[in-house]
């Protein structure tokens, strides 16, 4: 019922997560009816980002530079490396605000059934970094899921072979949480890794 260009815009918008036909129509009409300027800004920044953004050569995060801001920051500790699954995890770690080392982003996790093996998550790049000898401690901050644990174990094996100290982030009761509402698996973990006070 719309002309071809508008139809094309709507179907392109649907590539976004959570955008169905109805939202796509709303977005397309909004941009065309009320905010043409915003629409052309969106178009040009999308174009530029898709053209320019690649992966950081050191940590694999998304960036248009060869080396990203965190990796290039000389005030951060080069001997600490934290391994996370996604760029969003880096933001989460940064908002915690206490980590002063660098990151390595896997862009996924090992998942044999999905056909994702060690080479697909950049472990060869990580291994070269470990071999360079600048890293003293590797912190494994993959998710506490089955795939995340498998990934952590796999990386830990490789790092130990390079004589790098390896640690895994703790898991347990969330701050402000109530024991009554916490699942048994998490509680069991919290209990088995309790510490003396």
């Amino acid at each position: 019922m719309f002309s071809p260009l508008i139809d094309e815009l709507m179907s392109s918008l649907r590539c976004l997560p959570g955008v169905g036909p109805k939202s796509a129509q709303r977005m397309a009409l909004y941009l065309l009816e009320r905010d043409r300027e915003g629409a052309s800004r969106l178009a040009s920044s999308l174009g530029k980002a898709v053209e320019g953004v690649g992966n950081c050569s050191r940590c694999r995060t998304l960036t248009e530079e060869t080396v990203c801001g965190i990796c290039a920051n000389s005030r951060r500790d080069d001997s600490l490396l934290c391994v996370v699954e996604t760029p969003a995890d880096v933001l989460a770690m940064e908002s915690a605000g206490i980590y002063q080392g660098k990151y390595f982003i896997l862009m996924g996790h090992l998942s044999p059934i999905d056909g994702i093996g060690p080479a697909d998550i950049g472990l060869d790049v990580l291994l070269t970094r470990l071999q360079s000898g600048e890293i003293q401690e590797l912190i494994l901050a993959t998710n506490p899921t089955v795939e995340g644990e498998a990934t952590a174990h796999y990386i830990a094996d490789q790092a130990k072979a390079q004589n790098v100290q390896v640690s895994r982030i703790a898991n347990g009761v969330p701050l402000g949480g109530e024991l009554e509402y916490i699942d048994g698996g998490t509680l069991a973990h919290a209990l088995s890794s309790r510490r003396a006070v």
């Binding site: 059934i113 089955v146 644990e149 174990h153 796999y154 699942d183 048994g184």
Partner: peptide, 25 residues
Amino acid sequence: ESRQLPLGLKGEFLFSGLYLNELLT
């Protein structure tokens, strides 16, 4: 609902579990 706690497979035992799951799927 869970019947029991997660089995908490570790290391190579976890890899083996993933192997079994892949065979089954």
